[in-house]
Every structure is written in structure tokens, then in C-alpha cells.
Design a protein around this nucleic acid. Structure first.
Length: 380
DNA sequence: TCTGGGGTCCTAGGACCC
DNA sequence: TCTGGGGTCCTAGGACCC
């Protein structure tokens, strides 16, 4: 019993919108949405905007009328601001426990097992109040014995099934049982559309039914991923907190164009920018890469001739030098570019990434991996 | 040469997350 | 006219080796 963990999921409410409200308090109580890059679609909504019926990912052009009618306040996304606010929130959370996993820009798992003897609801309320006071960001906190159950608790808060107190706990087995009874499987963390359909085929509709289902059957249908979720629903923790930020194994930069693009020169400019962005991230984690994938594509939503292609370039050695990678990326672009198409999006992915410290300089000044077999040709 | 089993590594693609 | 961007994990299947 005492080995049971206590996990809190702290989630910032309508995070991007809340950030905008911090700098514009008159928006309090009013409907607000934040749009994706190029103002393509809605990616954050306040409760007021949700109540009006704005759906996650709704294309801007389709909701323009509703926005006007209900006087919804609209913002283009400002990721520099959101990243900044996120760091401040996470720093405060870290004051409450060193065991913390920053799961996304607006969510963190906290291991509160060591605070068992305290009133955990009160402790969580303290966290909420302090974050709100120091950053202006409202957060919701779900408590459970596993990550999946903490997510369940948090989800119930958002759904307003429980009156909006900002903290909900399913640590009590009876409360948990009740919560799972009516909790739809599609709302479980890790169960999305495809898996939901497979489970519906098995006549499994609620979290409770999934928890009590035949394990072999679930593993067969949903692989080990599903089996793990089952365990977590049973309050058996099998997803650990990942406290140290792992180095990225691949780094991607891509974006849609705000307008039609035909010319190779324009694609080159965009690709160069993407390489620049990605190599900056690469250097920040003190890594080097040896493989770069370049892709270009037309707009699949448009009824025009479609083209998608990608190519991977393997470099002779690992590098984090922007110009070297841009050179290779252009070479790759040359090989896949076809004129006459209206391009909508392009991007690059850096692969085969290793820490710079794992490499050493070979005779010619370019890194080679330690321990790898190399043949040296002495010139002259 | 033929036959078979088993292990490892790699890659592409599916599924899922926020 | 107009539909995000950046990730992770897992599996299946092929290549290769012993």
C-alpha cells in the first residue's frame, strides 16, 4: 500500500489564451482564441470561446462569421511569449518538488509521493494560488496514483463534471472507481481515434470496462502501449516520470506558406531558414547530426495537381554547421523539386543525432564516432 | 551446397501526444 | 483565397550474420 505513488498533473488552462490575458486583463471573462502559424486555424480557446462552439483546430476562414458575431478576440500565436511564461510556471512548480517532468509547454507531472502525510488537496491549492499570483496563469491539478489516472482526474476538472475547484483527486479507490465508470475511453491519455474504434468493436466504451478487460486481448489489439494503459488504470504505475530532458533524436522544422509558392528559389529560402532553426536547436543540446531529410508538398486540401516528395541525404561526417547542412539540403531539394506545382509546405528533419562529446576529431578536423572503425588515407 | 533457426540492426510507417 | 508544427514510441519486415 505504502509503495503507491502520488502523481499530480498540473495543466495550464487554455494556456496560450491565458498568456494573452496576462498582458491584456480586460480580456478576462471574454471569449479569446489563438491561431496557428499563418493564422490557419484555432489552436487555443478560452472556456467562453468553447461555449460558443469554436472547435480545436477549426480553420479560421470557416469561423470568421461566428467570431464577428460573438465578438471573439483573436490573436496570432506568439511562441516566444508562451515559452517564456511556461519557463516561469515550471520554475514555480519546481519549488514544490524536485521530482518533476515537464511534459509539454503547458503541462507537468509532479511526484508528490513524499508529501503523503500532508493534505494533498490543500497542497495542490497552494500550488495553484502561487502560480496564479506570480504569473497570472490559472492551472488545474489532477491527483492520482499513476500518470494515466492523474490525467483522468485532470480531465474531469476540465469537463466541469465536478464543480470548478481547480483540484481533483482519484487517489481514493472508490472515487476512482466511480470516475472510471462513466469515463469514455476516447478521453483516456494514449487512446485516440483508431484505438477507440478497435475497443468499440470489442464493446468496450468506458475506462472501467477497459481496466477490467482481458489483458491478452487488449495487448493483441493495442500492443504493449494499450497493456500499459490498462495497468495504469488499475493503479499499477508503469509509466515513469522522465525528469531529465532527453536529447532530441531528431529535430524537425517545417511550415506552411501563407501564399502559393512555385519557384525553387523561394523553396530554397524557406529550406535555408528551416536548417537554420533546426541547427540552432541541435547546437543548443550540444549535438551533431549526420543525416538530413528534405520534403516539399502541395496543398492536399486544394483541388489542384498534387505532388509530395522527400529525400534523405547522408553526410560523410557529423556536423552542426548550418552552412554545411544548407548546402546538402539544397542538393536534396534539387533532386526532388519539380516546376509547375503550387507548393504549400516544406521542411527538414535532422536525423542520426549524437552528442558532440561522443565524437572526436579525426585527422581532417571533422568529427568521427569514438570506437568506430576508420580507415585513414595519408595524402601526399 | 542445402536447410533451418535465431539474433541484431535498420528503416518505414502507423499511432498518438500537445 | 483560407485547414499547425514538432515530437515520441512501437511494430513489421528486410538484410545480414552465425
Amino acid at each position: 500500500m505504502s509503495s503507491e505513488k502520488i502523481i499530480a498533473l498540473v495543466d495550464c488552462n487554455s494556456f496560450y489564451c491565458s498568456c494573452e490575458r496576462v498582458f491584456n486583463p480586460s480580456l478576462e471573462g471574454k471569449p479569446v482564441i489563438v491561431l496557428s502559424n499563418n493564422d490557419g486555424c484555432a489552436i487555443a480557446r478560452t472556456d467562453e470561446a468553447k461555449a460558443i462552439g469554436i472547435k480545436m483546430g477549426a480553420p479560421f476562414f470557416k469561423i470568421k462569421d461566428v467570431i464577428k458575431k460573438h465578438n471573439i478576440h483573436v490573436f496570432s500565436s506568439n511562441y516566444t511569449l508562451y515559452g517564456d511564461m511556461s519557463r516561469r510556471v515550471m520554475e514555480i512548480l519546481r519549488e514544490y518538488t524536485p521530482e518533476l517532468e515537464i511534459y509539454s509547454i503547458d503541462e507537468a507531472f509532479l511526484d508528490l509521493t513524499g508529501f503523503k502525510k500532508r493534505d494533498l488537496i490543500q497542497y495542490s491549492q497552494d500550488i495553484r494560488q502561487r502560480v496564479l499570483k506570480l504569473t497570472g496563469i490559472p492551472v488545474s491539478i489532477g491527483l492520482g496514483p499513476t500518470k494515466v489516472l492523474a490525467k483522468v482526474a485532470n480531465r474531469l476538472l476540465k469537463k466541469d463534471k465536478i464543480k470548478n475547484q481547480g483540484v481533483f483527486s482519484v487517489l481514493d479507490p472508490l472515487v476512482c472507481e466511480q470516475a472510471l465508470n462513466t469515463f469514455p475511453i476516447e478521453d483516456i491519455w494514449g487512446i485516440s481515434r483508431k484505438s477507440t474504434q478497435k475497443l468499440h468493436d470489442l464493446r468496450i466504451y468506458t475506462a472501467r470496462q477497459l481496466r477490467d478487460a482481458n489483458e491478452t486481448l487488449i495487448q493483441k489489439k493495442l500492443t504493449v502501449v494499450g497493456a500499459r494503459i490498462m495497468q495504469e488504470l488499475k493503479a499499477v504505475s508503469c509509466l515513469d516520470l522522465e525528469q531529465v530532458q532527453q536529447d532530441k533524436k531528431n529535430i524537425c522544422s517545417s511550415r506552411s506558406f501563407g501564399r502559393p509558392v512555385f519557384a525553387k528559389e523561394e523553396l530554397q529560402e524557406a529550406i535555408a531558414n528551416h536548417v537554420h532553426t533546426a541547427t540552432e536547436k541541435l547546437r543548443r543540446q550540444k549535438s551533431i547530426a549526420r543525416s538530413i531529410l528534405i520534403f516539399i508538398q502541395t496543398n492536399p486540401f486544394k483541388n489542384i495537381p498534387q505532388y509530395y516528395n522527400s529525400t534523405t541525404i547522408e553526410l560523410p561526417s557529423w556536423t552542426s554547421v548550418t552552412t554545411k547542412l544548407i548546402h546538402q539540403a539544397f542538393y536534396g531539394l534539387d533532386s526532388i523539386y519539380k516546376s509547375g506545382f503550387e507548393y504549400k509546405k516544406c521542411g527538414i528533419i535532422l536525423n542520426d543525432i549524437i552528442p558532440k562529446s561522443e565524437s572526436q576529431l579525426d585527422f581532417f578536423g571533422s568529427p568521427s564516432i569514438t570506437g568506430a572503425v576508420r580507415t585513414f588515407v595519408i595524402l601526399g
